[in-house]
Simulated assay, not measured.
Amino acid sequence: MAQDSSFEQRQDEGISVFLTSSALDLSGVVASVKSPKAGALVLFAGTTRDNFQGKSVTHLEYSSYPPRALKTMLSIAQTMKQKHALTAITMGHRLGVVPVAEESILIAVSAPHRQPAWTAGEEALEMCKEKVEIWKLEEFEGDQGGVWRANRDGPTHVPSDLASSNDISR
């Protein structure tokens, strides 16, 4: 779980959430949820793809208010752990520039059985995309610029050139 001193990590029993500007460490996140009590381990790795709606993507850039985002992530993880009787859950999100083919988010869950692990992993991801206070700037190739979005795919929001002229902070 790559960490950098700029961002806090919050933990509860069997729960870890973190934000970092460093590359995410898949094996570290998997190791954080492994347990002899768990018969299933599910890892979701959200990776920057090279295109969106027919446009070539050069990179994504994520921005957040870390104290608030971590609080929301912790709440989601606690809910998932209780609701699905998980052994453990770790959620980590990268901030700053994330190049194509690198991970933006990792969610790992472990549970005694596979179905709760699958379900909890999917629900945690959807809740994270819906609720966590993280925004992304999607930069396109050439003179197409970029657009700000909430941390999910969907309708575009403020074009990046308008964001800078209207003083919207990253």
Rank of each mutant, 00 (worst) to 15 (best):
I105Q: 04
V98D: 03
E103S: 15
L125E: 06
V158Y: 11
A101C: 03
I89V: 13
A117I: 11
A124V: 02
P155N: 02
I107L: 10
S164L: 15
G92D: 13
A108N: 08
G142V: 00
E123W: 06
I105M: 13
H93R: 00
G92L: 11
H113I: 02
E126Y: 08
V132S: 02
E139L: 04
H84A: 08
D161R: 15
W118L: 15
V158K: 11
S169N: 08
E133M: 13
E103T: 07
L106T: 02
W148T: 04
S110Y: 11
V147T: 01
L137Y: 07
K83C: 06
S110C: 11
H157R: 11
L137S: 11
I134P: 05
I105D: 01
K129I: 00
T87I: 09
H84S: 07
E103V: 04
E138T: 14
E141Y: 06
H84N: 10
D143C: 04
E103D: 14
I107S: 06
A88H: 12
R94Q: 02
D161W: 14
L95Y: 14
P159T: 00
G121A: 15
I168F: 15
T119G: 07
E138F: 10
H84Y: 15
E123N: 09
R152Y: 04
G145P: 11
L162N: 03
E102S: 11
E130C: 09
A117M: 12
S104M: 10
A88C: 06
V109D: 02
